[in-house]
Amino acid sequence: MDSLKIKAINFDIQWKSQQKNFLTLEDILINESADLFLLPEMFSTGFCMEAKEIADSESLNLKWMQKIAKNKNAAICGSASIKENGKFYNRCYFVFPDASYKFYDKRHLFSYSGEDKIYTKGEKREIFIYKNFKILLQVCYDLRFPVFSRNKNDFDLILYLANWPNSRISAWETLLKARAIENQSFVFGLNRMGTDGNNLIYPESSYCFDAEGNVISSVSKQIVSAELNLNELENFRQKFPFLKDGDDFKIL
């Protein structure tokens, strides 16, 4: 049976406090085991537009994630503010247990907060295989744009890492469920908790949905857990082969 055990950390990110957030996460993870650990969007600083102050130009976030991946013998995924070649990116890293990695730069930048004026948008989707699951990486605001995440029979799981505030939490929950149903895919949406430096409040609102839109995750303190079964997904797709009836399109 192909299965994937995921544990996501929905913690209160300390504003612009990289080392403090690293230490907090290490304390949370110390006795946890999983195939994949998820961290929220900009997990080491909070969703901050002061990129000149917080952006990581020395790969400190990546190196920390690589250390955790090796120590836990598990994959770990999270996004951070990154400076590279004079540009800023909201970059999502997926680090494998051997410390190799993939990354995805957030495509849809949140113009309401001015993210599009500061960060550079990504140009392509990132899909890869981990433990036989084909995984698509997405970040927060990407959730509102279904064409970019449309399943062309090329993924089994979408990961959404977010800082999605309480004022729009109904949309977050509804859209996560919709992305799972329309793509006949598992969807894991991880949101942060607490209050950020802009006084935005983030409630407990992290979920994993199956392809029928059922919540299959459970919450214990700061850990949201789910175990995904690839055989069950494939059987469901064979019974209800809706994806083959979708429209042909190309993302430009």
Rank of each mutant, 00 (worst) to 15 (best):
T24D: 05
L25R: 12
E26M: 12
D27R: 10
D27Q: 14
I28R: 13
L29Y: 08
I30P: 15
N31I: 07
S33E: 14
D35N: 14
D35E: 06
L36H: 05
L36F: 04
F37M: 05
F37N: 04
L38Q: 01
L39N: 06
P40H: 11
P40V: 07
M42S: 02
M49D: 14
E50K: 04
E50G: 03
E50V: 04
A51E: 05
E53F: 08
E53Y: 11
E53N: 12
I54D: 02
A55Q: 10
A55N: 08
A55M: 07
S57W: 10
S59I: 08
N61V: 06
N61L: 04
N61W: 01
K63T: 09
W64T: 02
W64G: 01
W64E: 01
M65Q: 02
M65G: 03
Q66V: 03
Q66S: 02
K67N: 10
I68W: 02
A69D: 01
A69Q: 03
K70G: 03
N71Y: 08
N71T: 12
N71R: 11
K72V: 05
N73D: 09
N73W: 02
A74E: 00
A74Q: 01
G78T: 07
G78I: 05
A80H: 06
K83A: 10
K83N: 09
K83H: 07
G86A: 07
G86C: 05
F88V: 01
F88M: 02
Y89G: 00
N90G: 00
R91C: 02
C92Q: 10
Y93T: 00
Y93W: 09
V95T: 00
F96A: 02
F96W: 00
F96N: 04
P97A: 02
D98Y: 02
S100K: 07
S100A: 08
K102H: 14
K102F: 13
F103P: 04
Y104D: 09
R107S: 11
H108R: 15
H108P: 09
L109Q: 06
L109P: 03
F110K: 14
F110C: 09
S111Q: 13
G114V: 13
G114Q: 11
E115Q: 13
K117M: 15
K117N: 15
I118K: 08
Y119L: 01
G122Q: 00
E123V: 13
K124V: 05
K124L: 05
I127E: 03
F128Y: 03
F128G: 06
Y130F: 10
K131C: 08
K131N: 09
K131S: 07
K131M: 09
K131V: 08
N132M: 11
N132G: 06
F133A: 03
K134D: 12
L136I: 09
Q138N: 15
Q138A: 15
V139L: 06
V139W: 01
V139E: 11
Y141M: 12
Y141L: 13
D142Y: 06
D142I: 07
R144S: 14
R144Y: 15
F145V: 08
V147E: 12
R150V: 01
N151S: 06
N151T: 06
